[in-house]
Nucleic acid binder design. Sequence first.
DNA 1: TTTTTATATTGCAATATTACAATATAGATT
DNA 2: AATCTATATTGTAATATTGCAATATAAAAA
Lengths: 110, 110
Amino acid sequence: MGATKTDHFTDKQNAIATLAKALGHPARVAIVDYLLKVDACICGDIVNELPLAQPTVSQHLKELKNAGIIKGEIEGNTICYCLDKNSIDKLQSYFANISIKLEKKKKDCC
Amino acid sequence: MGATKTDHFTDKQNAIATLAKALGHPARVAIVDYLLKVDACICGDIVNELPLAQPTVSQHLKELKNAGIIKGEIEGNTICYCLDKNSIDKLQSYFANISIKLEKKKKDCC
DNA sequence: TTTTTATATTGCAATATTACAATATAGATT
DNA sequence: AATCTATATTGTAATATTGCAATATAAAAA
């Protein structure tokens, strides 16, 4: 017990959950916001932007990368991290679809 | 250590993280999918739809409710759970906004 | 009123996450 | 080559999450 029962759900459900989970921490949302704000890929100063120690930031970046929210390559002693539009679009369309279905429904009982 | 440093981030970042975190588990995504599929609010049979024990499902429902993804009221020995369109829309517009900004960018270095 | 039915709560064990100090790594600079 | 700089990894402690058995709760049905 304690481990998520991933194999009992559909691939799509797991995929959405993985992406959502990656953004389920304010530091990682902040990283995404920062990547958008600077409008660039090379963000060597991201550690200075967050109220967290360098290893912690590195760990959060790793999780975002593992989940597919960002992609990045090592370039010497700097890093090139970019948002992966494909993943963002997956989330966007998932929620847009829900929203549309809720709009049609209107049986607003709660 | 171990606790999330919530107070170091903006309210919006925390709000998005809370909503995303709630959907960061496939069982909770499955619950959302099911609420959409049945197109109704009263979903007493949700326990039978998931590969999890009743207390576990109850706990996931509680987390979805705490995060604001669903709203619900107790009605006798059945439950009326609905998706909260407001929360879904928050997520949808957050990701739509990111997507639009990424579209404009085009400096696809990674 | 007793029983049934459906959901919630409690308690607990297994696992995962969060955070950081210390250290490693590797390209850039001198 | 030695040093600097930026990021990654390791190890570890604190906390959170996941899952379920056992139990509680409360309205409905008998």
